[in-house]
Amino acid sequence: MSELTGLYALWYRELKVFSREPSRIVSSLIQPLMWLLIYGTGLGSIVSVSSTGTSYQSFIFPGILAMTVLFGSLFFGLYVILDKRVDFLKEVLVAPLNRSTIFFGKVLGGSTDGLIQIVLLMILGALFFGIPLSFYSVFMSFLIVILLLVSITSLGLTIGAIMESPEGFGLITSFVIFPLFFLSGALFPVDKLPAWLHVFVVINPVSYAVDGLRTVILGISGFGLALDFMVLIVFAVVMVLIGTAAFKRMKI
């Protein structure tokens, strides 16, 4: 019981902090909107994905959702390092809670933050970018997004638990976020890629989130929804297990 209230406490903290910083919410939306508006319109004027029966802008919309999750959640996890620098993390760690509870609280908090951003983006997408949304597509998108949020937040927390200082943040962006993003098919159809590049897309779990979102929102499927869900569930479970272990071993 006390573990559950502890979990609630950690979640409550993340939500309060998130809601107290409206600038953070706004800035988290600016980047995806710029991709859609500038990159989507710009590149959309010269490339055509007409074989898929949709505009380029709509085509990258699911990819931009995945990107928002990727950037937001990974950095959310990495910020544990900053908590280490002050004694805030100690206050949580000295509480009579299991390390795994603390980890789940963080994942839950980070995922909720991310889901709020996705909801806002989907509303903006439907209003201004002509993204077709139905009850089915929204519901399924949430399932996919939640799996991805849990995985990527766990990944961020794992790296954050291991890293000692925030100086390596730039490296993480270059070596984790960008490859996962660019090799996910977020910005282009992957079926015409050369084989060597296609391999990376296939082994990148984020590809399956992009594919799943594209399937449920636009009806354009690559791997098939069943495989998408399977990969994402396995990815989430593995990342949570690794993250829990990393948190248990974390030294401060």
């Binding site: 209230t5 502890g6 609630y8 406490a9 950690l10 409550y12 903290r13 309060k16 902090v17 107290r20 910083e21 002050v86 004694d87 805030f88 100690k90 206050e91 949580v92 509480a95 009579p96 809670l97």
Partner: peptide
């Protein structure tokens, strides 16, 4: 410092009580 700047004093206490 080990309390959350963005929260009020009472909210920080509330969190602690829950944990």
């Amino acid at each position: 410092p080990s309390s959350d700047d963005l929260l009020t004093g009472r909210e920080n206490l509330y969190l602690h009580a829950l944990m």
